Measured scan of single mutants.
Amino acid sequence: MSIQHFRVALIPFFAAFCLPVFAHPETLVKVKDAEDQLGARVGYIELDLNSGKILESFRPEERFPMMSTFKVLLCGAVLSRVDAGQEQLGRRIHYSQNDLVEYSPVTEKHLTDGMTVRELCSAAITMSDNTAANLLLTTIGGPKELTAFLHNMGDHVTRLDRWEPELNEAIPNDERDTTMPAAMATTLRKLLTGELLTLASRQQLIDWMEADKVAGPLLRSALPAGWFIADKSGAGERGSRGIIAALGPDGKPSRIVVIYTTGSQATMDERNRQIAEIGASLIKHW
């Protein structure tokens, strides 16, 4: 067993022997301040990774656009098919120029040779490549099948209805392509620590998230040296922004954090800054 596999296998073990965790309302004060600064709703939840206990939450059962955070769930569904012998990570998928959609920095470079399922998941999570996500959605049967996968996990809230990039439209009061912070946090925890996926697939999923290259201005910008984070960000229309993450000190994750916002007129930089400040408060009061 590799060191990384050992780390993920012992996530519940280490967490069980940690000192009790206590909620700190100071972080919620910052979440509410972010709402004021952005002029928009902000949803927040913080779960203990081992027990699933909610440590703090704000608007945990209000719907927010998922945006690209759905790509972690998508690759979880792909990995479940791999575990069941219905898919192979090494299978190569070929596609054409007509398949390319807006923001496809990886797939646009491989029109000639195609990409493997493993490479597509890596591109979808680490670079948020939209064509990679659409190609992977095709392998599982489309958005409705991802929703069905989530329902089978016990998540009857999260739903995907459309493809990239239309799913980022974020129309107010439109339930399409949305989740709730509580539902997303619980589902992410199941994917990373539950028995739904094999140990190898859980490790692969967290490795992809740990290698995320496009979430630097968010929670990662607030992390002290030595902290662990595996995350996936999302951005959408109407001032929408979000991030889902597993993080913790001492090089291992111990909490799940989900943050979503929508309806702001603020710039992307300002949305990023507010999420980073929430992260800084979380870490300060850990």
Rank of each mutant, 00 (worst) to 15 (best):
R91T: 13
I275G: 01
G194H: 14
A246H: 04
E35P: 01
N168Y: 02
I259L: 05
M67P: 00
E166F: 13
T193Y: 02
M66V: 11
G114H: 08
L120M: 05
D83S: 04
R41M: 13
L74G: 14
R91D: 08
L191P: 01
V258E: 01
D129N: 01
I259Y: 03
L120Q: 03
D174H: 12
L218Q: 03
A40D: 12
P165R: 08
I140L: 10
G39N: 05
L167H: 04
R271C: 11
E175K: 13
A77G: 08
E102L: 05
G248T: 02
G234S: 11
K232E: 01
R91L: 10
F64C: 04
R271V: 09
A276G: 11
G251T: 05
L89D: 06
R63K: 13
A148P: 09
L135K: 08
A40Q: 09
G154S: 12
S221D: 13
L73F: 04
S80C: 10
K53R: 13
S240V: 06
V82L: 08
S96V: 12
T138H: 13
I54F: 05
E119F: 07
R220I: 10
V101K: 06
I206S: 07
E210W: 11
V78T: 14
V72W: 01
T267V: 03
R238C: 03
N130D: 11
E145W: 14
R273F: 11
R81G: 05
E119L: 07
P181R: 00
N98W: 10
K109H: 08
V82A: 11
L79M: 10
I229L: 12
P143Y: 10
Y103L: 03
D113R: 04
L136Q: 02
A225M: 14
F228M: 13
R241E: 08
R241P: 00
A211V: 15
K190I: 14
A235P: 00
E210Q: 15
I93R: 15
P224A: 11
G216F: 11
E46P: 00
M268K: 13
G90N: 15
N152I: 11
R81L: 06
K71M: 00
F228K: 14
L197F: 15
E26A: 07
T193H: 08
P143D: 12
T267L: 04
W163P: 06
G251Y: 02
S201M: 15
G236C: 03
E175C: 09
R238V: 09
K53G: 14
L191Y: 10
D161A: 05
G216E: 08
H24R: 06
G242P: 00
R159W: 14
N173P: 09
M66P: 01
R255P: 00
A185G: 04
T198Q: 06
G279A: 05
A182H: 11
G242M: 14
M127L: 09
T193F: 07
A170H: 03
L38R: 12
M115H: 02
G239T: 10
M153H: 03
T267G: 05
Q37I: 12
L219A: 10
L120R: 00
R159S: 09
M180R: 03
A148D: 11
K190Y: 15
I171D: 15
S201W: 08
P224L: 07
T131N: 03
Q88L: 10
G216T: 10
E26C: 08
D48L: 03
P65N: 10
G76N: 01
E35L: 11
V258L: 03
E270H: 02
L74E: 04
T262H: 07
A225S: 11
S128V: 00
G234Q: 01
V257K: 00
S221H: 05
A280Q: 06
V78G: 10
W227A: 02
G263F: 13
S264A: 10
D174S: 13
Y103T: 05
T138Q: 10
L167W: 01
D250N: 03
K144M: 02
M209N: 01
G90F: 13
M184N: 02
G239Q: 06
T138A: 08
A40K: 08
R118K: 04
T179V: 02
M153Q: 05
R238E: 15
E175I: 10
T112Y: 14
M153N: 02
M184H: 04
R176P: 09
E26K: 03
L100P: 09
P60Q: 14
I278Y: 01
A123T: 07
G194T: 10
L146Y: 05
H285F: 03
R118Y: 05
T69H: 11
D231N: 03
M153Y: 02
H151A: 07
K30P: 08
V106T: 15
S96T: 08
L120T: 04
A133T: 02
D269R: 05
M127W: 12
K144D: 02
P224H: 12
S233C: 03
